[in-house]
Design a protein around this nucleic acid. Structure first.
Length: 475
RNA sequence: GUGGCCAUGGUAUAAAGGUUAUUACUUCGGUUUGUGGUACCGACAAUACGGGUUCAAUUCCCGUUGGCCACCCCA
């Protein structure tokens, strides 16, 4: 919604500039400027900083929703026995190059990579799985009772072209289960992701598939490439290029001509080894049992190389196909830990894109919320505290603190001195009661409690305010 | 990375090749000093940036930047 403003110097008022004496750049003059405007011309910095492309500020109006999502994540992770972990945003580039794989878009064109001061190639993490795997090895987590179940929440970075629901810095919530090779684990992860979204009121469609072991996949790719070559002339230009580079990707092309070819293509399911096939059947049975609706999608392959066997993605119901409707995904990555130099460890996980969840939730709130976008959030049960006079103001912090200890939150603006102004704020906040502390009250050790709806006020002893408030709230 | 659409105060908008660029909301101050919801008055605040055409551009053209959308890819 909001647009970045490039403001030229002449638009920056002297007032805004006040206090910024050190000028960074000389303001540019234009012939058009009148003498009057020129006088206003600030000598201060010409630059107005704006948010970087693909980055996003989370503003007060969004704060509540973000916290709501975070708490939902926290609760569900706790309910399924996951422990919280954090890993650094900065990692060695090669960690991701080796795990996600050369040739994937994430690694080839989207990583924020640079040389650290000592020359180390580092990057801003594009995802968390590799970091979690790294932490698992680094800290000997394989000596804990297995499996190790962890969840995380944090910023990821991919230098992609910004679009709806896609940013260069974005948040993911995710869960990983390391050290267990059982189909229940895969199913549980789907269940957790699915229920997380359901708790938020988002119905999703789960797509599942199995891409087998590395070996299965290699055999399949040989077959697939053979088939695709035979149909080469029917494929789109993009897909022609991908035959050699990344043939699996052709499977989920959205172009009609490709889809026609893919429909006849050999399916990876038929190339799975017996154990992988059995494993996948088991996962599906668990999903049936858990009551999670899913769609078997033979064309589902994921964009990261480390996946083995189970892969899945979650799509919001009713969202237009294609347009950033994937809310998250995951799968099994049995080879990853070993590939990064650890002991061979089976593992699986998933992650959800928070920005996409926010966007769906926002759309849903609709016009009503949009109208209030700039207004203050109503605090229907809230209580405002107003003070009048120096003495009262001085006592204010003390009183607020006393009540805070009792678990009572008072909204206030101690900087205002007129009672009227404070009442206005109280009104805008939509609080039910206002406490008023004036000169007289300070002397008497009392406080006025005003019912904002009826206008009735009563004088209450300061020591008894907490009881009065409790009574008001009906506790 | 490719293509399409777009760019006016904090937000949402109006208008025109030509004096002080409309309106509403928000914010702040006030309508005589210890009381809000209404009303009234006032203040702050915008043509994204750079260049071109023109007597004149914020309006037309080009470039840049940014946004949205689609593709690629993904979350």
């Amino acid at each position: 919604m909001s647009r970045t403003k490039h403001v030229s110097p002449k638009k920056i008022s002297a007032k805004k500039i006040a206090g910024h004496k050190k000028s960074l750049a000389k303001p540019l003059m234009t012939e058009k400027m009148t003498t009057e405007k020129r006088e206003k011309q600030p000598k201060g910095p010409a630059q107005l900083y704006t948010v970087l492309r693909g980055m996003k500020d989370i503003l007060p109006k969004d704060g509540e929703m973000w916290q709501h999502i975070y708490h939902t994540a926290e609760n569900i992770a706790a309910a399924y026995g996951f422990s919280y972990v954090e890993t650094p945003v900065l990692e060695q580039s090669s960690l991701f190059i080796r795990s996600i794989g050369k040739g994937t878009d994430v690694v080839d064109k989207e990583m924020y990579t640079f040389d650290d001061r000592d020359g180390t190639k580092v990057c801003l993490r594009p995802e968390m799985t590799a970091s979690v795997a790294r932490a698992y090895m680094n800290h000997g987590l394989q000596t804990l009772p297995q499996p190790v179940k962890v969840w995380y929440w944090g910023q990821m970075f991919r230098h992609d072209r910004p679009q709806a629901g896609r940013y260069r810095q974005f948040h993911q919530f995710g869960c990983e289960i390391l050290g267990e090779h059982s189909p229940v684990v895969d199913a549980e992860l789907v269940v957790v992701a699915y229920n997380m979204l359901r708790d938020l009121g988002i119905e999703t469609q789960v797509k599942v598939n199995s891409i087998g072991t590395l070996e299965d996949r290699q055999n399949y790719i040989v077959e697939l490439v053979g088939y695709l070559r035979s149909k080469r002339s029917y494929l789109s230009e993009d897909s022609k290029k991908r035959i050699n580079k990344n043939p699996l990707r052709i499977l989920d092309s959205k172009l009609e001509q490709d889809i026609a070819v893919v429909e006849e293509a050999p399916q990876i399911i038929d190339w799975l080894s017996d154990t992988s096939k059995k494993f996948f059947m088991d996962v599906i049975e668990y999903l049936d049992e858990a009551g999670v609706p899913y769609v078997l999608t033979p064309t589902l392959v994921r964009g990261l190389d480390y996946y083995t066997d189970t892969v899945f993605e979650l799509f919001a119901d009713g969202q237009a196909e294609g347009s950033q409707s994937a809310l998250g995904g995951g799968g099994r990555y049995n080879g990853l830990v070993a590939q990064l130099g650890g002991v061979d460890t089976p593992a699986a996980g998933f992650s959800l894109g928070i920005e996409r969840i926010v966007s769906i939730l926002r759309d849903r709130e609709g016009a009503k919320e949009k109208a209030e976008e700039n207004s203050i959030k109503q605090k229907p049960g809230g209580i405002f505290f107003a003070q009048l006079g120096d003495q009262a103001r001085k006592r204010s912090l003390h009183l607020i603190e006393d009540l805070r200890r009792e678990g009572i939150v008072l909204y206030h603006n101690l900087a205002k001195s007129s009672l009227k102004a404070q009442m206005e704020i109280a009104n805008k906040l939509g609080v039910s009661h206002t406490l008023i502390l004036g000169q007289k009250e300070v002397q008497d050790g009392t406080v006025l409690v005003r019912n904002m709806e009826s206008g009735i006020q009563e004088v209450v002893d300061q020591k008894k305010v907490k009881n009065t408030i409790r009574k008001i709230r009906g506790v």
